[in-house]
Nucleic acid binder design. Structure first.
Length: 451
RNA sequence: GGCGACGUAGCCAAGUGGUCUAAGGCGGAGGUCUGCAAAACCUCUAUUCGGCGGUUCGAAUCCGCCCGUCGCCUCCA
């Protein structure tokens, strides 16, 4: 399998350290607001990576963190008059509910920063002892100039960063580009005891501690959104390699393009968010998922309801192709489609091309059905492809209560009688009226069907 | 100011040196089927890939310049 590696900006052959297992660490959310469609894009992409690796026979260890201590969390909790813990717990549950709805498989482990404090302190201690970090006042900073490769991931020089006027100068820092490993607490902030006084971990250090603790010193794949490349992942590399004395921290760095909404990226700071919950009131999970995968994961995708609706219509074509057929003639061979599908998946997760293959196969199945070929096997291949992408093909939820079904069946029976009697005006009236109620009638060779 | 990405049909979106007179989807047009529909199937819907130059036997694909859009450099998937 080939994957694009942000570290060297090339597509390279992926070979995990262990030929049978893959260690993946994906940066998770800061749980202080509802999970939005941009998050969904990222986690759906890494879910597809995981599903494809598992399909390819790898045992995948997938760790994803929750950054459950941070300035925004503290502010939001104060605003709502609840504890930080209560706030993060609420949005962690929201995250899980959302991911379940989108058929995202659960990671192997979801560590939370606040539950790893002793280990984080231990990591910081090690870094101080080796001269990579220094306490200053109530804080501890990472000494960036000790890291030779600093800037490699984000392709920028330390000089550029220093000259950038946007870096705030902290008098406690030896160097403006040094970053905090431990932040001394101010009044009213959550804090933990440490050798440097009460405080909390900086943003980046938790990932070093958790990834080395749960996956080992070196990862196969580290993932996240493109907005994390700098400073978060750059700092993570510096810390982790200093901590373990091993390079590289991660073989491959994968970054998904950011979801756009209108002219801007969808983001908490801009406030142009569409929560997944809101999106799912208008679109089925399968449609949203397929939509998120319809452009390449490294490209930005502009979210729109119209786009989702178009995908939902196309999804119906796939479902129709999967409807069972009684024909049992020559067996349709779908192996060529499967090979193509897998080749595209192997090429840096080219899901748009893979999806195109699914539509080609669906057409082939429908064609085969018309000539009474046996398609069950081909249909299974199509389902397998869907499964790799996490598409369930399940029917959209209908508002129809099961106890009205007999009445609809009765209406259709009457309509059949009317059709037999050539009373088409009345038959069409039934069909049109049901259509207005969002019940679609199809007259097939085996009788009428409704949905 | 520094770093990076992108600009392909009405819309979404692949393809990154020859098989591209450019995949797939949505939308649209015509047809087959049907009492009529629906669904499905068939045909058509970019001789062209932001613009201008260059490299090459050959470029949407490489290089340069220009125009436009966006991201990162501050919390962010």
């Amino acid at each position: 399998m080939k994957l694009y590696n942000t570290l060297n900006r090339t597509i390279e052959e992926f070979k995990p350290y262990n030929p049978t297992e893959v260690k993946v660490y994906v940066c998770g959310v800061t749980p202080y607001s509802s999970t939005h469609v941009g998050h969904a894009l990222s986690y759906v992409v890494f879910d597809v990576l995981r599903r494809y690796l598992e399909y390819s026979g790898f045992n995948v260890h997938h760790v994803q963190n929750f950054t459950d201590v941070d300035d925004k969390i503290i502010i939001k909790a104060k605003e709502e008059g609840i504890s930080e813990n209560e706030l993060t717990e609420r949005y962690i549950q929201d995250f899980f509910a959302t991911m379940d709805a989108l058929n995202v498989l659960r990671a192997t482990k979801y560590p939370r920063a606040t539950q790893e404090i002793p280990d984080i302190i231990e990591t910081i201690n090690t870094l101080i002892e080796s001269g990579h970090a220094y306490p200053a006042g109530a804080d501890v900073f990472f000494r960036v100039k000790e890291s030779i490769n600093y800037g490699e991931l984000s392709n920028r020089s330390t000089e550029d960063m220093i000259s950038g006027s946007r870096i705030e100068i902290d008098p406690n820092k030896e160097n403006p580009i040094d970053f905090a490993l431990w932040k001394g607490s101010k009044e009213g902030e959550p804090s933990w005891d440490s050798p440097w006084g009460p405080g909390r971990p900086g943003w980046h250090i938790e990932c070093t501690t958790m990834s080395t603790k749960y996956l080992g010193d070196q990862l196969d794949i580290h993932g996240g959104g493109m907005d994390l490349v700098f400073p978060h992942h750059e700092n993570e590399i510096a810390q982790s390699e200093a901590y373990t004395s091993k390079q590289p921290f991660s073989k491959i760095w994968m970054h998904n393009g950011l979801l756009q909404f209108g002219q801007d990226k969808m983001s908490k700071s801009i406030g142009n968010l569409v929560s997944v919950e809101e999106a799912l009131t208008k679109h089925q999970p399968d449609a949203l998922r397929l939509y998120l995968l319809s452009s390449h994961y490294r490209s930005p995708l502009n979210y729109s309801d119209e786009g989702c609706e178009a995908v939902a219509r196309s999804l119906q074509r796939l479902r129709v192709a999967l409807e069972p057929s009684a024909a049992n003639g020559t067996i349709l061979d779908a192996s060529a489609y499967k090979t193509k599908f897998l080749n595209h998946m192997s090429n840096d997760l080219d899901t748009p091309q893979s999806i195109a293959v699914m539509f080609d196969l669906a057409r082939e199945i429908n064609r085969a059905k018309e000539s009474s070929m046996e398609v069950a096997e081909a249909q299974n291949e199509l389902k397998t492809m869907g499964n790799i992408l996490g598409i369930t093909f399940s029917l959209p939820e209908t508002a129809i209560l099961s106890n009205v079904a007999p009445f609809i069946d009765l209406l259709l029976e009457i309509r059949q009688d009317l059709r037999q009697a050539n009373q088409y005006d009345l038959a069409d009236k039934i069909r049109n009226t049901l259509q207005d109620l969002n019940i679609n009638i199809e007259d097939t060779s085996t009788g009428p069907k409704w949905q």
